[in-house]
Design a binder for these strands. Structure first.
Length: 425
DNA sequence: TCTGGGGTCCTAGGACCC
DNA sequence: TCTGGGGTCCTAGGACCC
């Protein structure tokens, strides 16, 4: 069963380059929320040795020396670009799994006599032409192998952006796998990688040939499955429909330290509102809400305070006001004065589909209906008029604590007043 | 001065039951 | 000196992913 993995190259950076072609060939990074650390790097930046997740303030000097251009994350833009890519890719196979904002799997098993490498090149050309983004394509018999094939397509110029493992004979494939570090395998993170290397399993080929039972006892069934996948046995199926989330989070670091309960409450109301919107979008109710606050863990000399609390709801709900009440109840119990808080967040859990709302004798169905219409109106207004048009006053008006985004580009594709302008001078 | 955010799955261990 | 056995459920924590 041939599976293709299509992955955009340096996705966020490439999105920015589409609208500023002069950035082509120049070192570019995109920063995380709060302009905290590097979350996307152009090839030029990788070549300078800048690591993923490097704190921006630490590499600032290097950046200045080499003229690295930095952008704040513009998730509105990236999400829109992603949708365009995914809907184009959907035309290349009846089965598509959108795995993340910049990758998807396609099941190619229906295409019997296809030249997969040529097909991969057609995909590349199509995406480049219609969206302007560079992508690479990996093809093989399992998801794990397709991921590796994609890695090869990205890293080895000889493949010109498309690598089909099926096109190699067994010996050639093993030879190739013996040149890739075991840590590149999907599902092998830094911890497991270090342990494997201690055991003498250093390359992908070593892991492919490791005895599955030993891997199971020493590690887990998960890694055992990975070994099977490396041997061409597809254990992971294509998930075309994303299952509803089991928990929904919203949290942010603050742009400036927060000291007072009042300001923490504003943040908690804001994040709860966001989480509740996501909750309603997937038509679920939450049975509990967890609140957490913390000081800056990177400042061990400063007084530290970090706590979380789960607040059960009287009945499962998707009403922002009810969730906010519970969250603030939790916050008041967590809060201790005298600390410089750096982050707060909420997690909605015990989610159930809305049609499974438990019924009791004492349900106030009138209040429930009112709540539903109110939320529908709020969501509707915010969808049409722009997010945040209608919100609870508890979010605060000033938001001194809101995140820094000093280098954000316009929402070129989603707002008429920020649309890209082309000049012919 | 400045260090992201949002998820999933699995396992071990404790509580509890008969 | 000796202190059952087997099962389920729940939670916290660890590992991973992008």
């Amino acid at each position: 069963m041939p599976i293709a993995l299509i992955d955009c190259n340096n996705f966020y950076v490439s999105c920015e380059r589409v609208f500023q072609p002069r950035l082509e060939g120049r070192p570019v990074v995109v920063l995380s929320n709060n302009d905290g650390c590097v979350v996307a790097r152009s090839q030029e930046v990788r070549d300078l040795g800048v690591k993923m997740a490097a704190p921006w303030f630490q590499i600032r000097e290097l950046a200045e020396r080499h003229g690295i251009i930095a952008f704040s994350s513009n998730y509105t833009l990236y999400a829109d670009m992603s949708n365009r890519v995914m809907s184009l890719l959907a035309d290349f196979s009846p089965q598509q799994e959108i795995y993340s904002i910049d990758e998807c799997f396609l099941d190619l098993s229906g295409f019997k006599h296809l030249d997969y490498t040529a097909y991969g090149q057609r995909i590349r050309t199509m995406i480049k032409q219609h969206v302007g983004l560079p992508v690479c394509v990996g093809i093989s018999a399992s998801k794990t192998l397709a991921k590796l094939a994609n890695h090869v397509a990205k890293k080895r110029p000889g493949y010109a952006g498309v690598c089909d493992f099926n096109a190699l004979d067994a010996a050639a494939l093993d030879a190739l796998l013996s040149t890739i570090a075991v840590g590149e395998v999907w599902g092998v993170g830094p911890r497991i990688s270090a342990r494997l290397i201690d055991m003498g399993i250093t390359t992908v080929l070593d892991l492919k040939r490791a005895p599955p039972k030993m891997i199971r006892t020493q590690f887990s069934v998960v890694l055992e499955r990975t070994v099977a996948e490396l041997n061409g046995e597809a254990c992971l199926t294509l998930e075309e429909i994303a299952p509803p989330k089991q928990q929904i989070m919203a949290s942010r670091s603050f742009g400036e330290y927060v000291y007072t309960l009042e300001e923490l409450a504003q943040a908690v109301v804001t994040y709860t509102t966001r989480a509740a919107e996501k909750l309603r979008r997937q038509a679920s109710l939450a049975g509990a809400i967890q609140v957490h606050i913390r000081t800056n863990p990177f400042k061990p000399d400063a007084p530290q305070h970090q706590r979380g609390l789960i607040v059960p709801l009287p009945t499962p709900s998707d009403d922002t006001r009810q969730l906010v009440r519970a969250a603030l109840f939790g916050l008041r119990r967590l809060y201790r004065p005298g600390f410089a808080y750096q982050k707060a967040g909420v997690v909605l859990s015990e989610l159930i589909p809305i049609e499974q709302r438990p019924r009791t004798l004492f349900d106030d169905t009138v209040a429930q209906a009112r709540s539903q219409s109110l939320m529908r109106v709020m969501d509707g207004v915010n969808r049409i008029m722009g997010e945040h048009t209608l919100h609870l006053l508890g979010e605060g008006l000033e938001k001194r604590w809101k995140m820094r985004r000093g280098h954000k580009t316009p929402n070129y594709t989603t707002r008429f007043d920020e649309i890209a302008v082309a000049r012919a001078d």
